[in-house]
Simulated assay, not measured.
Amino acid sequence: MENTRLRNESDSNLSYTEVHSSQESSPGPINEYHNTRRYQRLEDHSASTTWFQTLVHLLKGNIGTGLLGLPLAVKNAGIVLGPLSLIVMGIIAVHCMDLLVKCANHFCQRDQRPFVDYGDAVMYGMQAAPSHWMRTHSIWGRRIVGFFLILTQLGFCCVYFVFLADNIKQVVEAANSTTNDCSYNKTVILTESMDSRLYMLAFLPFLVLLVFIRNLRYLSFLSLFANLTMLGGVILIYIYIAQNIPDPSHLSYVSSWRTYPLFFGTAIFAFEGIGVILPLENKMKIPHQFPVVLYVGMGIVTALYISMGTLGYLHFGDDIQSSITLNLPNCWLYQSVKLLYSFGIFITFALQFYVAAEIIVPAATSKVSDRWVLFVDLVTRTLLVCVTCFF
């Protein structure tokens, strides 16, 4: 992956902070990576990110369309089992993210490498396995992980295309019957507009221009603004669902085992940020700060998931729809939630796309001369966005 190189003692690429003498003599196993990986990425300040910028990206990468479907997920699990399951899934997700970073740091220290991506982590791990078959086929571990990362991240981007088109289409078609009165009204008269696929095509050129931003540092400003707009939309949703909560005694505490897989699928989709963990850590100026960023960021995300899913189901009960925005009153205040959230998803597209691009683009540009690198880079990004739009 195209990442900022690190300064080390032998070739002036690493600058270590002060460590205790007893730590310097330690072999640096995985569980001591907090002490051994205390360096700064100093070669290119413009490409490095601060802890705050990384936190913004982490929140942006995890808070997407999945959040809006969690009330329905809680319905499929039950008002008691749903929140408990989200807590367990949050703990597992954070543990896996932390373990992934520890493994990557271990291999960096062991092999004196500037960075390790997902494919490298799997390949080096298989090379150290006791099984001869795994050692001899380690390159396939790298290829399989790369393939599924591309599939997953571009799959998210496909969902974002649909979300953007459908939400803007709903706002446009309900515009004639949208009022300033936010009293709940189930009767919404829609005015037919153009097909959803035409809305997708309308977003295509703007998303292409967005993914031309190749530096996470520059993208962080847009990501912060998107977080603020999505925060505004989420606050409006919370204000509505926290009022006039009906008696929950009729709600199921534990739903049928037949619907629990539906909860699990929606919840797993909501925890969509693991694909951006290593790229974010690799871009940090001071990478040993990343564990704190990870725990704080994922703590916020998990608390948001649990509260949104629980309050949404408590308020709307069995009438909850696939996206909680569809249950909101048809007034301009709550229609603006769709617009605010759509802008946030628009920016999130670039962050999820970044992971797939960091795998595919270097492979494409490595086959051309230096004078064509930028051209091939931009063309590859354009084609990838068009493919997601097509699917």
Rank of each mutant, 00 (worst) to 15 (best):
I237P: 04
E272L: 12
Y253Q: 12
P248W: 03
A242K: 08
S252C: 15
Y295M: 13
M230G: 03
V254N: 05
I245M: 06
E272K: 12
P287L: 04
I268Q: 02
A242I: 14
I241Q: 00
M284D: 10
Y253P: 14
F225Q: 06
I235H: 00
I237Y: 01
L228R: 05
G233W: 06
Y240K: 06
A242V: 05
E281V: 09
L304E: 03
A242W: 04
T302N: 04
A267Y: 11
G233K: 09
V292Q: 11
N244I: 03
Q289H: 15
K285D: 14
F271S: 01
A267R: 07
I245R: 05
G299S: 05
T229H: 07
A226S: 15
V254A: 15
Y305V: 01
I286K: 14
Q289I: 06
R258Y: 12
F271N: 06
V276L: 14
P246N: 00
G275T: 06
P279R: 13
S256M: 15
L236N: 00
V296A: 15
S249I: 02
F263K: 06
A303V: 05
A270H: 05
I268P: 01
K283V: 06
Q289S: 11
L304S: 03
H288K: 13
T302E: 03
V276A: 10
V276E: 12
I241W: 01
V296R: 01
L251S: 08
V234S: 00
E272A: 13
P279G: 02
N227S: 08
A226T: 11
L236F: 00
L280V: 04
P261N: 02
P279S: 10
P246I: 03
V254D: 03
D247Y: 14
L262A: 12
G275H: 07
A270L: 02
F225S: 11
M284A: 10
N244K: 14
Y253V: 11
L262S: 15
L228Y: 03
L228E: 03
L278G: 05
I245T: 09
F290G: 08
H288R: 11
P287W: 09
I300K: 02
P248G: 14
I274S: 12
L231D: 01
Y295K: 13
M230C: 08
I245Y: 01
F263S: 11
A242L: 14
G233N: 11
